[in-house]
């Protein structure tokens, strides 16, 4: 369940103190109650929990390992009888175990890389938007530049210099993915900063960092959470592109992105090799989505 907790907590962890200062404990209880009353969100949490449990413990249910090729059972369709629940792939490896192993990688990459881009993006965007003027201009021009820099060369160079460490996946993805987040947050901040309550806080002598943390960021939560749910799927798919360049998860290990990629080629001959990983991937993304919506509603400052 660890990854659920991480994701759900992600937006709130950043500003726990603000929340307490502003609202006190009971409002957090309120938020939790509201979240638990949201049927879609609760269902999504249960499904996601089940997926996470399956990904962690599921391989124990199978007699096969994720990397054992079986030449005599290439492209076996799913069958309970011979324990290939999801069938086998192009070199006879068991897809049930591979899908679950792939899930470990994809969930981890999806969540961690998203958090990286969230932290950078929100901090950067809120600062640029609130400070405005020259600072905003320079900060956003830097974003423009980074948008344009050819990502593939960046990745290739990362590898040439540092080798193939797992941590580089997060660096590579995080480094590119925070740009959208920063732009969106900055846009929202621009429209927030002339609102009455911000101006009141300024008049009251609250320092800039505190205004950003206490007044701007909590009001960005809605947009940010929605955008997180859009970032996770992107991150999971970018990971498989990184594997193509030689970074990222390497065979015989796999990820959902890589499995879906392979499955897409075998779509007609061995549809199961696409369907199972794709269903897991889609189900997970749907769950994040509904949990995100539930959280957004629950944490909405205007409802508190």
């Amino acid at each position: 369940m660890s990854s659920i907790i991480q994701t759900d907590a992600a937006p709130t962890q950043i500003f726990p103190e603000d929340a307490e200062v502003l609202k006190g404990r009971s409002l957090w209880d309120d938020a939790r109650n509201r979240l638990l009353n949201n049927k879609a969100a609760v269902t999504a949490m249960i499904v996601l929990g089940a997926i996470v449990l399956l990904v962690i413990f599921g391989p124990l249910l199978s007699p096969f390992s994720y990397d054992y090729p079986d030449w005599d059972n290439i492209y076996e369709p799913p069958s309970v009888g011979d324990a290939h629940y999801f069938g086998t792939d192009s070199i006879g490896r068991d897809l049930f175990v591979r899908t679950l192993y792939g899930g470990r990688v994809s969930l981890m990459v999806g969540v961690v890389a998203t958090i990286v881009s969230l932290l950078i993006g929100v901090a950067y965007g809120a600062t640029a938007g609130y400070l405005g003027g020259r600072v905003d201009n320079i900060m956003m021009r830097i974003v423009d530049v980074l948008y344009t820099v050819p990502f593939m060369f960046f990745v290739i160079l990362l590898m040439v210099v540092f080798g193939r460490h797992l941590i580089l996946i997060f660096v590579a993805i995080g480094a590119i993915n925070w740009l959208d987040m920063a732009r969106i947050v900055r846009g929202q901040t621009l429209s927030l900063k002339h609102r009455e309550f911000i101006e009141a806080a300024e008049a009251g002598g609250v320092s800039t960092p505190n205004i950003i943390r206490r007044h701007i960021v909590p009001n960005l939560l809605g947009v940010v959470i929605v955008y997180i749910t859009l970032t996770i799927p992107q991150v999971i798919l970018i990971e498989s592109f990184l594997s193509f360049l030689g970074l990222g998860v390497q065979e015989p290990l796999t990820s959902w992105g890589a499995l879906v990629n392979e499955g897409a080629e075998d779509m007609e001959t061995a549809p199961w090799s696409l369907i199972f990983p794709a269903v897991f991937l889609a189900a997970t993304l749907f769950c994040f989505n509904f949990i995100g919506d539930g959280l957004r509603d629950a944490l909405d400052p205007k409802d508190r």
Binding site: Y68, W71, I91, G246, Q250
Partner: peptide, 29 residues
């Protein structure tokens, strides 16, 4: 190339006990 590398790594392991790390790289690299 990937399938063949995986297959040969498996053969070396099964037949001789060789431990193979397979590494894919972008073409020009």
């Amino acid at each position: 190339h990937k399938k063949i590398a995986l297959a040969i790594a498996a053969m070396w392991k099964q037949n001789l006990g060789v431990l193979t790390e397979i590494i894919n790289q972008e073409w020009k690299v």
